[in-house]
């Protein structure tokens, strides 16, 4: 699902109740996360629930895209992961860095509806993704 598809469905919904259910639904459909990746080094800190996130580079095309896999033991967090995956899918490291993710959260009302600890967890995931992307961009710049 692209972020445009996600947003057009999300913004059809009348209130946070429905949007919350929607996030849980798309969280259910996350791609399976390999059990062997559920290691301490892949845990994102700052989350109340456990979140694992693995970032890699997909170089099978003529572009190199950031490839993300993530999972959580909380369903609402899986829903937020689904949003992140949609926002960052098929993007180069530079495009990841250029993505206005805060604007997206604002547009979806997440800052309003999520508690501060959940927002911190979400930002923890974003930070980790951005750090990965900036390492790639930095390494390429120095070559």
């Amino acid at each position: 699902m692209t972020i445009q598809e996600l947003l057009s469905e999300y913004e059809e919904l009348v209130d946070w109740e429905e949007q919350c259910d929607y996030l849980i639904d798309i969280g259910r459909e996350l791609p399976v996360f390999p059990e062997e990746f559920k290691t301490d080094s892949n845990i994102v800190h700052g989350c109340q629930s456990r979140v694992w996130l693995v970032a890699g580079l997909d170089q099978s095309h003529d572009h190199e895209f950031v490839r993300l896999q993530a999972d959580s033991d909380a369903m609402i967090v899986r829903g937020l992961i689904a949003v992140l995956l949609a926002a960052y899918q098929n993007k180069t490291p530079q495009q990841v860095l250029d993505t206005d993710i805060e604007g997206l959260f604002e547009r979806m009302g997440l800052n309003r509806h999520l508690s501060s600890s959940r927002r911190n967890g979400l930002h923890g995931m974003v930070e980790r993704i951005r750090r990965y992307a900036s390492e790639i961009v930095g390494a390429e710049g120095s070559q």
């Binding site: 109340q48 629930s49 909380a74 369903m75 609402i76 967090v77 600890s117 959940r118």
Partner: peptide, 20 residues
């Protein structure tokens, strides 16, 4: 049922508990 999810759902029913 993760406490994080439960807290979110209880909040929707105005049932205020703590989790963590």
């Amino acid at each position: 049922l993760h406490p994080e999810d439960l807290a979110l759902m209880l909040d929707r029913k105005a049932v205020f508990t703590r989790h963590g």
